[in-house]
Design a protein around this nucleic acid. Structure first.
Lengths: 323, 323
DNA sequence: GTGAAAGCGCTAACAT
DNA sequence: ATGTTAGCGCTTTCAC
C-alpha cells in the first residue's frame, strides 16, 4: 500500500480511504489511486486490515463430521452465501468427540473469527458450555439447543412433522412395535426424534418404543440392529437415525435374512445422493441440509449487521417406501 | 499480552519469548509468566502473530465441490492432519466453475494462507495458470496436473490399475463395446480414465470406446446415458465417472428398462457410503479419498518444513459387481 | 479533501 | 537472561 501511495504521489491514508470506499475523496484522487493499484496489481492485506479493524471476515464451522453428506451439504450451503459476502469458511470435524468441539471453539476464538456455525458433538458438555458462556462471538446453531443465557441464532428442524406422517402411515398398516437406532445422545436431532417418535406411536396406540442412542456410526447401526432383531417379539418397524447408522443397520438386516418390507419396515432419516437406488426399499424422513446451511449463514450475516439472534424452524417430510 | 507482562512485572518481549518456547529464559521468568497467563486466561492473538511473522497457520482448499462425498473425505483427511499441526483449513467450492477457482485462489492469497490444496475445476484455464505462476504459496494438488514450471506437490491416482482389472474381467466375459460417461473434461481424473479405458479396451481387442465428458452432474449422467442407450449397436458395458453422474445414469437405465447385468454391465468410479446396497449390482473402481486428503496435507506440511514439492501416486482397485 | 501520526498485538533485532 | 525499540500493513483520529 505504501508502494501504491508513492506511485500515485499521495499519502497511504488516502489510498486506504479510496480502497475503503470512503465518502470524502475527490474523483481525481480516486482515479490516481485506482490507476496505481491496477498498474501494480495490488491487493490489500486482509491480515493487517483485520488486526486494525477487529473484523477477520472469517467464520468457523464446528462440525460433527464433514465427511457426513448432511454436514457437507450444510457447509456447501453456508459457503455459497459467505463467498458472496466476502467471508472465508474455516471447517473442522469433531468426529463426535466433545473434546474436539472444545479444541475448535478455542482455535476459532484465537483466530478471532467473526462468527461460528455450530453442529456440536455434545450440546450439554459443561466445558463447552462454560467456554461458550464467556464467548462474545456471534453464533448460529444447526439443529442444536443451548441454555437460554447463551445468545445464539439457530436453525431447527421440525422432526416431529416427518415422524408423525411416517407413524400415521405405518400404524395405519397395522404396525404397533417400533424401534429406533438413534444417533449420538446429546444432540438435538436424536433427542427430538426419540421424543417425537415415542409421542406419535403412543398417540397411535402402539407399544412403547425401543430406543438406543449411541453414535452416528455404522458400527452402532450394526450391533444395535442386531440386538433389536434378537428381541421377542421383534419390532416390525425400524427407524434408523441417519445414513451412517443405516450402513450398519442394512448389513445386520441382510445377514439375518430379514425380508423388507414383509418382515420389517425400515424408515431412515435423511435422503442422500443415490438413496433412491438403495435396496431394500426404505422410507425416508427428509430435510434440506443445503438450505439449513444457507440459513445458518444468513442468520450469522444478519448478526454481523447488528441484528439480534433468532431461531428459524424448518420442516421435515415423510417419503414412504416404494411399493 | 501487555496485561500479562504488567501482571508478571516483566517486559512484553519476555512474555513473547516464554510463549514461543524460546531458549534463553530462566525458569523463574517462565513460571512468573505462565502463572500470569493462567491467572488471566490469556491466549495469544494469532492475527497479530501472523502479521508479524508472515505465517498464518492456515491452508486453503480449492475444491470442486465440498458436497461431493469424495471431496468431503479429502477435506476430512486433510483436516485431521492440519488439526494436529495447528493449522486451520479454509474451504471453498467451485461447483465446477473455473471463475470460482480463480476467485478462491485470489481470496486465499489475500488471506495469506501458508499453503493451498487444489482440486481445481479446470486445470488448463489460462487465467488460473497465470495466477498460479506468479504465486509463491506452497501447493498440493489432488489428482490434478499443472505445467512443469509451476512447482507443486501432488497426490495422483493410478486410475489405470483399476480400469485394467475391470476391462480384463469384462472382456473375459465376452464384452467388446464399452462406453464412458465421463466427468468434467479438463481435470486429470477424466483425462486419465478416458485414456486408460481406451488403451485397455484396445489391448483386449474390443471396439473403440465411446466417451462423452461434460460435468460431474446427475443431469449429464442422465442425458448422456440416454444417448448411449440410443446407439445401435448398444454398448454392453457402461463406465460411469463418479457418484453424482451415477445418480443420473441409474435413472436413465431404469427408465429404459435396461436389465443389469443381463443387458448391460455397469462399472462406476468411487465407492461411497451405502454403495454396497445399491441396486442394480454395480462394479466399482475404488480409491481412498480420505487417505489422499491426508497425503496432500502431509505434502504441504513437508513443504512448510522446507522440503521440495514431490508427487505421490496412490492406487485404485477394481471390485467386480456381485453375482 | 488530504496528510501526518498513532496504534491494533505481536516478534525480532539490538542493547545491556 | 531480560528490557527497549522498531515495525509487520493497515485504519483512523486529528490537524490543516
Amino acid at each position: 500500500m505504501r508502494i501504491v501511495a508513492e506511485r500515485a504521489g499521495v499519502a497511504v491514508s488516502s489510498v486506504s480511504r479510496v480502497l475503503s470506499g470512503h465518502e470524502d475523496v475527490s474523483s481525481v484522487m480516486r482515479n490516481r489511486v485506482l490507476d496505481a493499484v491496477a498498474a501494480i496489481g495490488y491487493e490489500r492485506d486482509l491480515l493487517a486490515q483485520s488486526l486494525r479493524t477487529g473484523a477477520t471476515y472469517s467464520v468457523g464451522f464446528v462440525a460433527i463430521d464433514v465427511a457426513n453428506p448432511v454436514i457437507a451439504l450444510n457447509a456447501a450451503g453456508a459457503e455459497s452465501l459467505f463467498r458472496d459476502a466476502g467471508y472465508g469458511l474455516l471447517i473442522s470435524s469433531s468426529g463426535g468427540d466433545p473434546d474436539l468441539d472444545l479444541h475448535y471453539l478455542r482455535h476459532f476464538e484465537q483466530r478471532r473469527v467473526d462468527g461460528m456455525i455450530l453442529s456440536l458433538a455434545h450440546e450439554n458438555n459443561p466445558d463447552t458450555l462454560a467456554l461458550l458462556r464467556q464467548l462474545s462471538t456471534p453464533l448460529a446453531l444447526i439443529d442444536r439447543t443451548l441454555p437460554r443465557e447463551i445468545p445464539a441464532s439457530a436453525v431447527l428442524h421440525d422432526h416431529a412433522t416427518g415422524i408423525d406422517a411416517a407413524v400415521a402411515d405405518l400404524a395405519g398398516r397395522g404396525h404397533t412395535r417400533f424401534a429406533l437406532v438413534n444417533g449420538a445422545p446429546h444432540v438435538r436431532p436424536s433427542k427430538e426424534r426419540a421424543r417425537a417418535l415415542r409421542r406419535a406411536v403412543r398417540a397411535a396406540g402402539g407399544e412403547p418404543v425401543t430406543v438406543k442412542a449411541r453414535a452416528y456410526s455404522a458400527e452402532h447401526g450394526y450391533t444395535t440392529t442386531m440386538s433389536f432383531l434378537a428381541a421377542r417379539p421383534r419390532p416390525t418397524v425400524l427407524f434408523v437415525g441417519g445414513n451412517q447408522i443405516l450402513a450398519g443397520a442394512l448389513r445386520a438386516l441382510a445377514e439375518e435374512g430379514v425380508r423388507i418390507p414383509e418382515d420389517m419396515e425400515v424408515v431412515t432419516f435423511d435422503k442422500v445422493a443415490l438413496s433412491d437406488f438403495l435396496r431394500p426399499p426404505l422410507g425416508f424422513v427428509t430435510r434440506d441440509p443445503r438450505g439449513a446451511g444457507r440459513l445458518a449463514a444468513e442468520l450469522l450475516l444478519e448478526q454481523f449487521d447488528g441484528a439480534e439472534p433468532r431461531t428459524v424452524t424448518v420442516p421435515t417430510a415423510y417419503e414412504p417406501a416404494p411399493r
